[in-house]
Amino acid sequence: MIKEFTKGIIKENPIFVIMLGLCPTLGVSTQVINSLGMGAGVIFVLTGSNIFISLLKNFIPENVRIPAYVVVIASFVTIVQMVMQAAAPSLYDSLGVYVPLIVVNCIILGRAEAFANKNTVLASILDALGMGLGFTLSLLLVSLIREVLAAGTITLFPMGGFDGVIEVPGLVNAPVRIIGLASGALLVVGYLKALIDLKQKSPEKAGCHL
């Protein structure tokens, strides 16, 4: 059963192996704080939707299952949006348009279709937590690289006297701005994917001929 949890972190990592959820990855990974917020939102929605879709798998008619999944997922996203707006308005403001976009995050619909509608509630929860954690960790890695290179900072939550921004000496005054743009996001994700493929597969399978 524990395999259902651990598979999403590395072996079936949603971003670098299954290649799902790339749009939000490219969009929000400009700052570390955005990745933390987006990751938490995706874990919540993924877990909630997996639980309900697993519970309702015998009730949802086979030929309209996708619209039914979308209703469940959209409801959870709207709940996240309303609660975040009321309880953490600064995080809601910083995530901007990306919170509603969780609805169309392929990981969530993908896990509902590929896993939750065929498995038990417990297995679906573990799958959601593993996939959500794998997504969050990957997103954090991409955003850490992008923010450090593109802005020379690491932005976290402000706490007490700490304003939440750590400046990286050297880079803060001479950042590589292209990494902060969409093309920079594609470069970072592409290189990380190549590195992971190189590590996981033999060079031939990974398409590398060194």
Partner: peptide, 12 residues
């Protein structure tokens, strides 16, 4: 606003 975090959002 609905600007992109890290880009247009910097206007805040």
């Amino acid at each position: 606003n609905g600007e992109t975090p890290g880009l247009g959002k910097n206007a805040e």
